[in-house]
């Protein structure tokens, strides 16, 4: 059974404050029936070095990805995962992780593909919890398996495929959330060292460059509504009615931006192109722009 949203003045500024909880709220609610706390990190071993007492681990690589199809798990696999983690369909799931909740936001986005209704982020993530001197444990969290229904993934609302991005070029604003060097196509190339596995550097024409971490404050929490509006509305030029597509390298950093645009700023139609540069930079017959300019959609100049 889902629990009530945290009443927190700091979150009231955001469009959907019920999507955030504070570290204190987690400390107060972990172990409460109907609440499951999930840690999701970039580093597959970090949870094992110490986690919030009572938290379970969901790993993006081993739990959420399906290697044979290079896709996300299907409805049955997700149901099996949820059962194994002790999560019921109507539970409140609170996710936290390393690196300003970068991977936690990715997990939240995948939970949303399966229509899990109440999934929230712990603002500030793992680093804030540790900075506040709160308890970590290496004790295994006891889990009672649940009956979670097999619900098919709905990719139509918050996920964009390559074909969607191609069709949207020139009409739908794109946000490239990678580093400036990845955006321009400049390579930090050194002889003899393996490079990122893409054939071409650069960005999707028309995409604005907004590195994902600009939405995060020093302590890993999200920046204020005012600061976020200044970046995405004033600087990038997004309008309230715009559809938006965000992308990065494999869709993880852009999940963070998806969360910001959807839940903090209240844009209604934001999609994450998870194929991202790993797909686009290797694809045949797609346009690429290099340098600092956004570039134009093919045909737009004619």
């Amino acid at each position: 059974m889902a629990v009530e949203a945290e009443q927190n003045d700091a979150f009231a500024q955001y469009a959907h404050p019920e999507r955030l909880v504070s570290t204190q709220w987690v400390a107060d609610h972990v172990g409460t029936p109907g609440v499951v706390v999930v840690e999701s990190d970039e580093d597959v071993l970090l949870y094992e070095t110490g986690h919030i007492p009572g938290a379970v681990k969901v790993d993006w690589h081993t739990d959420l990805n399906e290697p044979d199809t290079r896709d996300y798990v299907n409805g049955e696999q997700f149901a099996e995962l949820m059962s194994r983690k002790g999560i019921s369909r109507d539970d409140t799931v609170v996710i936290y992780g390393d690196k300003s909740n970068w991977w936690a936001a990715y997990a939240l986005w995948v939970f949303t593909l399966f229509g899990h209704r109440d999934v929230r982020l712990m603002n500030g993530g793992r680093d804030k919890w540790i900075a506040e001197g709160r308890e970590l444990t290496t004790d295994a969290t006891p889990v009672t398996p649940t009956e979670y229904p097999a619900v098919e993934r709905d990719d139509s609302v918050i996920r964009a495929y390559r074909e969607d991005v191609l069709a949207a070029l020139g009409t739908t604003p794109l946000i490239d959330v990678r580093s400036p060097q990845e955006y321009t196509g400049e390579r930090t190339h050194m002889p003899d060292y393996p490079q990122e596995g893409t054939l071409r550097g650069g960005h999707i024409p028309t995409a604005a460059s907004v590195p994902w971490a600009r939405a995060a404050a020093e302590d890993g929490t999200f920046k204020s509504r005012e600061d976020l509006d200044a970046i995405y509305r004033d600087e990038v030029g997004l309008g309230q009615d715009d559809d938006v597509i965000a992308y990065c390298r494999i869709g993880e950093r852009s999940s963070h931006t998806w969360f910001v645009l959807t839940h903090l700023l209240g844009f209604d139609n934001v999609r994450n192109y998870d194929g991202s540069w790993t797909e686009w930079g290797n694809a045949v017959r797609v346009p690429v722009a290099q340098g600092e300019e956004r570039g134009e959609a093919p045909g737009a100049a004619r």
Partner: peptide
């Protein structure tokens, strides 16, 4: 299977350096 490709490349890079 357990560690993402980018991380495995990190180990290759250590060996290369």
């Amino acid at each position: 299977k357990l560690v993402s490709p980018l991380r495995m490349r990190g180990m290759s890079a250590m060996l290369g350096r």
